[in-house]
Write a protein that binds this DNA or RNA. Structure first.
Ligand SMILES: [Mn+2]
Ligand SMILES: [Mn+2]
Ligand SMILES: [Zn+2]
Ligand SMILES: [Zn+2]
Lengths: 133, 133
DNA sequence: TTATAAACTTGTAATCATTACAATATTTTA
DNA sequence: TAAAATATTGTAATGATTACAAGTTTATAA
């Protein structure tokens, strides 16, 4: 499905800038931060402002087509919201990998009367590439 | 066991400041940030510097007696490293609750040759208190 | 004890991601 | 076309964290 129609379906007017930021998230599976998205797009959109990248990512997050990846990093990284999955981050090269989300066993004891809407899982360690250089 | 001996056991010289920061983490189960730790202690240690709080928390994290709690917050929150557990953060009041860590089923598919050293789990939603005000 | 070195603590300035906000540009509506 | 709404931009402010050098305390050795 086209980027435009996905944005439209989520109540976001599909401006060129917004589509390109969406495509940037879709094509790269590197969980880019604002700086990386900006640097990637400013070649094609020379007037692009970093504020627009922030605004757009906020809008995407609000409308649930993107999510902030939970990492111990100091800056936010973004991911399309499509399929729930876990992440692995290498402590050596800091690369973020997608991983399957372990099966949800049950609501944790004592949280039956809480409303749980999301579960983030982050594995950390050393990636294969960094183990066998 | 005394704070002093725990610090010593982990190769940290137990200065008064360090013991008090350790006790602050131990006594409060609110996962305090640097600002909160500083404000709590500066009454008792009027010469305390925020840099010292940062330095000490870095040292504690390095020596594995404390950990950074993984949250979507913009600032780091700290926890003693004692017992592995998950967290729940309320999206309304932002309170952080300890939760049991769901049983690890298995290493995620495709990560057999990675070295996984840690797993962080964060539930988000609305806490009981905010659901029934 | 006294001198010297090491370790610890402090204060200030710099950095960096993010937000605030007002100005400009574009698109929509009347 | 004109006015209103929306989108984008640029600059300044904020706030957490880090860098770093200076000061203080503690340990070690003459
Ligand atoms: Mn992902
Ligand atoms: Mn905890
Ligand atoms: Zn790696
Ligand atoms: Zn709550």
């Amino acid at each position: 499905m086209s980027s435009a129609s996905i944005l439209t379906q989520h109540g976001i007017k599909p401006s060129l800038t917004r589509m390109m930021i969406y495509d940037c998230l879709k094509e790269s599976n590197s969980h880019p931060n604002v700086e990386e998205i900006y640097r990637h797009l400013v070649n094609q959109i020379p007037t692009l402002s970093k504020t627009t990248v922030y605004n757009t990512l906020h809008l995407f997050t609000e409308k649930q087509i993107a999510r902030v990846v939970m990492l111990k990093d100091q800056e936010n990284r973004y991911d399309l919201a499509g399929h729930p999955h876990a992440h692995f981050q290498c402590l050596v090269c800091h690369q973020v990998y997608d991983a399957e989300l372990p099966e949800e066993s049950h609501v944790p004891r004592g949280f039956q009367s809480f409303k749980i809407v999301d579960r983030s899982v982050l594995f950390t360690g050393t990636c294969e590439r960094c183990l066998n250089p």
